[in-house]
Amino acid sequence: MHATLFYLFAALALMSGLLVAFNPFSRNPVTRAMFLVLAMIALSGLFVLLHAYFLAAIQVLVYAGAVMVLFLFVIMLMDLRESERRRVGAFAAVLGLAAVSGLGALLFGALRQAPAGTEAAVGSTRDLGRLLFTQHLFPFEIVSVLLLVAMVGVIMLSQREAE
């Protein structure tokens, strides 16, 4: 049962992830965005199988529920007919492949070095929060500052456009 569900969600995540990047049937940006939503939901299913309910809920809430809705909002506001017709050039393909393999290598290395997951991430929200504010305080603060910088940047850019 557990294994079946794992393979089901993993296959769903990979398939819809692939369909985001290369969809032979449609070049419609909305279709791609919707497959990305499906991939997010499948990932959240995988988190549930690992008993990481908090992460699963956050995955749906933040990525599927908020980020992707904003993507759709932008896609619908701008007329993206142009991008449907555009072909991928050789330069872009090489650059993209290089970026993907670089990121993949980084991820693989990190995964091999990482210790086995702690029980705290699986347990209650309280334990997760405590861990974030003690053991992982430094990365947590860096991410917070990064988000703040991004927020200030967005406000600066949109202000300049309004003037």
Binding site: S44, Y53, A57, V60, A64, G65, V69
Partner: peptide
């Protein structure tokens, strides 16, 4: 669920797709 409220918010946040689509 031990994250009951987050689950409800997660699912409610998906309800916008019906209207947007």
């Amino acid at each position: 669920l031990n994250v009951g409220i987050l689950y409800t918010f997660g699912i409610t946040s998906l309800s916008v797709y019906g209207i947007v689509l």
